[in-house]
Amino acid sequence: MSSNDKTTDTLSTQDARMGQGADDRFNSPLREAFGSTPFILTKFDKFMNWVRGSSMFMLQFGIACCSIEMIHTYAIKHDLDRFGAGVPRSSPRQADVMIVPGTIVSKFAPRMKRVYDQMPEPKFVVGMGSCTISGGPFQEGYNVIKGAEEVIPVDIHVPGCPPRPEALIYGVAKLQERVANGESAPVTVKPYEMEQFGDLEQDEIVQKLADQIDEDDLVMRYNWTDSP
């Protein structure tokens, strides 16, 4: 990952995000061993895709305004559980889908990345609201990450500020459809990746912080100018 990071300067952001290894999240060692895709595995894959698309545990995860509409989506009138996606788990270890409901700021991005990393594969992300697309109304803020995709790959974007519960349901249903069809998010490389502090290039900022931060600490470095 970090080797890809270094090349972001020369690649366009989109190319950098696409990277290599896109779409290989479902490829099992078993299939690699076979080399091709035998019939039985295709059927099995189909079944597994159906399974993953029919039932999802959501991560109980609230960030900002959108989380209020997200709760409404779970609650009485909209009832996301009809789609088999209404069980919020508070521990990321047991969740399949992370709905990112709100603005991500610099202080929170590393934490969100950590939570995402704690989820077991296969995992999916629904970006809820404009803030997870581009930073939304707060895009010009000094502290705001310009979209969730800067930090973690997002499968479905639901636009709106905030999206109505119906829109979120549509987004989740769309995600289920995509998963059931065996499609996954092409995004595997992110501009902001957590790195060990000691590995960062020694520029002015890193030197300034050198005695404050332990070499082994994980850090996220924001190059605001590279953001879209």
């Binding site: 159906w50 399974v51 029919s54 039932s55 609650a75 009485i76 009832d79 559980d81 009809r82 789609f83 088999g84 209404g86």
Partner: peptide, 19 residues
């Protein structure tokens, strides 16, 4: 006052397999 799973199989029963 909700409905809960009703899409996967009859009465959503196939959710057991899926889950």
């Amino acid at each position: 006052d909700r409905i809960a799973i009703n899409r996967v199989g009859p009465f959503g029963l196939l959710i057991i397999v899926a889950d």
